[in-house]
């Protein structure tokens, strides 16, 4: 990617934010990063008609909310850690509380509520803009430092395979 030589000079959170908006799938669905703070990441998506659940309904496909939550949670891990080591989604559970109207923008607010050396736990409600209460809630678990740490461990341990 252009300009990667300057990455070290930049704030890792700013870099992660830029990365987040450049992810092809996120761009394809129209996701924007509204805010990226240590305790929360807010992302917004203005749905197009191609994201609906059915030709006969003005309702969003739940999978669009799923993608938004996965993206927001990933960024929230970077925001909480303030480092750019690779991470991987272990699992993500979505509860779809009620249908989301296609006419309204979605806003996801991801929060990393617990961190261990290996794992990050996240919670992410999704709102239909202008309506009270979430339309969906996601809970995700991410593995931290999926590559860097592994290399360190195998190099420093004599019993490593």
């Amino acid at each position: 990617m252009a300009g990667t030589g300057n990455l070290a000079d930049h704030d890792p959170v700013a870099v992660a934010r830029q990365f987040g908006e450049q992810v092809p799938h996120s761009r394809d669905l129209g996701m924007q990063v509204l805010a990226m703070e240590a305790d929360q990441v807010r992302m917004r998506l203005v749905p197009g008609p191609e994201l609906r659940a059915d030709d006969a309904a003005e309702e969003l496909c739940t999978s669009v909310l799923y993608s938004l939550v996965d993206s927001a949670c990933g960024l929230a891990v970077f925001a909480a850690l303030r480092e750019l080591k690779p991470i991987a989604t272990l699992d993500l559970r979505m509860d779809y509380l009620r249908p989301a109207a296609n006419k309204r923008a979605l806003v996801a607010i991801a929060h990393c509520h617990h961190l261990t050396d290996d794992v990050a736990f996240l919670r992410c409600p999704v709102f239909s803009e202008g309506l009270d209460g979430p339309v969906a809630i996601g809970n995700a678990t991410f593995m931290r430092a999926t590559q860097g740490k592994h290399f360190e461990t195998t190099a420093s341990r004599s019993d490593a395979v």
Binding site: H25, R27, D28, C61, Y66, S67, S71, P86, T89
Partner: peptide, 24 residues
């Protein structure tokens, strides 16, 4: 398709695209 990518470095398909495949 390139538009499904979630991790440019690996590259890997976005977990959300896999989630969509599963839900649908």
């Amino acid at each position: 398709r390139d538009a499904l990518i979630g991790n440019i470095m690996l590259p890997a398909v976005h977990g959300g695209a896999i989630g969509g495949l599963i839900e649908i």
